[in-house]
Amino acid sequence: MDKLNGETVSILLFFVGLYGVVSRRNIIKSVISIIVMETAIILFFLTIHFQEGSVPPIGENLSGAVADPLPQALMITTIVIGIAITAVALVMANSVYHKYGTSNWRELMIKRREDDHD
């Protein structure tokens, strides 16, 4: 079971998300796939420098291995950005659906092209 650690899982999850954006034609599913990719990155960051038994980097005179605090700080930022992006993307998806009456990328492209030729 050594192979089944955070890194391999997150790499797999990332490509699941990438498969989602490539193959799913629904806008909402695309947004979900993007969130899956982001979650994979967060998992990857949190596991890369993980050491068993390391202590939190708080206080003075720490003994033993100290956990790397940087990934956590970075990932909080990523989560916040992810929320903002999801919110904006969903609002936009909603407005696209209202304007075009479909949430399928292919149909949207065709309707958008018809707009141009009017």
């Binding site: 998300g17 947004v31 993007i34 936009m92 407005s95 304007k99 141009d116």
Partner: peptide, 21 residues
């Protein structure tokens, strides 16, 4: 917020976010 620019905007944003991922 007219029809065309809404589509252009969402494609722009999602594509760039996938790339930034």
């Amino acid at each position: 917020q007219d029809r065309q620019s809404v589509y252009d905007g969402i494609v722009y944003m999602l594509v760039n976010i996938v790339a930034m991922n």
